[in-house]
Design a protein around this nucleic acid. Sequence first.
RNA 1: GGUCCCAUCGUCUAGUGGUUAGGACGUUGGCCUCUCACGCCGAAAACACGGGUUCGAUCCCCGUUGGGACUACCA
Length: 472
Amino acid sequence: MSEVRVRFAPSPTGFLHIGGARTALFNWLYARHHGGKFFLRIEDTDRLRSTDEAIEAILDGMRWLGLDWDRWEGGSGETVRQTERFDLYKEKVQELLEQGKAYPCYCTASELDERRKLAMKEKRIPRYDGRCRERSEPAPDLPFAIRFKASPDGKIVVNDMVKGQVTFESKTVDDLIIARSNGTPTYNLTVVVDDVAMGITHVIRGDDHLNNTPRQIQLYQALGYPIPKFAHLPMILGSDKARLSKRHGATAVQQYRDEGYLPQAMVNYLVRLGWSHQDQELFALDELIEKFAVEEVGTSAAIFNPEKLNWVNAHYIKTGKPEALIPPLLPHLEQAGLQKETLDFKALHRVILILQERSRNMKELAESAACYFLDDIPYDEKTKKFLNPESVPILQAVLKQLTDAPFEHNSLKAALETVCESMELKLAKVAQPIRAAVTGKVVSPGIFDVLETLGKEKALKRIDKQIALLTG
RNA sequence: GGUCCCAUCGUCUAGUGGUUAGGACGUUGGCCUCUCACGCCGAAAACACGGGUUCGAUCCCCGUUGGGACUACCA
């Protein structure tokens, strides 16, 4: 069986964050590159912290990024949920128990907690003292957790696809709890059992899991399982080199969507965090699938840089086809006060054409686009500089000249040049008042494009209205 | 504290036992110009430190320092 099978295994305790998205992306790319399978497994064994909202948020984020996942043959749904697999875990725990590879531990959580604190205080290494490991007295009638009996002998070597060979002394591996006293299994056990059950060939995850790997390898061995290949990806950090968190601004992938980022920009930005292909910065998705290799992923952590994301996003906006930009733009247009139902899509197409090269995100684009559709446009405070009594003659001349002009770039140019000549003014002197009058802003695309796009009716009406207001 | 990981411009990174250490974002000077962008041309900006190995180290090895992760009946 040479098929590549990977998985992304988030715990549904929150939204899909940047780090998780990158891990998912690398798994996805690896699977797609090798023509393998990419599964989504929800690690919800911690029932207290897992929520259905979080699961939905994660799936939503995955879909937005375009990371489609495969259905696991052995599962009943689109994703694998660990809470539906407790029977299997119990069976495996029982197996380990029967083989003497695990044992009940009667220490309570609070006792363990106290001992740990004491150890820290006395500067001892906080690790389980193994007091229940070799129990000779009869089992007390108390709740118990199950611990894995780690082997203290020898070394555990991880041949990591990104980190290279990493060696751990077996004796540093603690007797970890594999089942809680309430009977539910814990992460290190479920991850091993499921990865084997699902036939996972490559475990690609954040390097915060590197230290878990020796424990998991011991479990693989105890269960008589083959060990998959591992690839531990470097972390993504915030600007202060600390783990990315809310302090650094948006960490949820959805928030970037809401702020006007395009999924392909997000994907392109994320893939370059830790991976590169010579000097290339921009990659189309199919190109990524073709070129991506986990083996080429770098070893050091990367700092998330919103500025560069902005640049990538702007690139995809200015090079995108207007029709492709419309769907992701719609929610932002609604935010900007435009109803989808009343939108003139042909006009929108033209508006996008003149705005896309000067927009960094969809939100900006939508806000700039609004004035081409609204009947009553808001006027920026800054327009006062250009809309004053002095500009009235200019506006009047322009209005007169434009009344009979075809609203097409070259004719508009000729018309405004005529005004400039007759009034002995530079184009800037004429363009700014018009710009202010017709867009309500002091910056916009080129004035001829603006007028053409806006159309004669709206343009003249707005100029006329400003003249009226200023002379009124 | 213990274990493990990491170290090239501010940031993402390329790179090689001999290079003027390359690209990109950002910063910055200029050009273009009706505003703002875009675009174009230029500039500043890095091999953490100390030992080795070597004719020669940014590159290989060791150490130091500095970051990070893990050290839960979280995942």
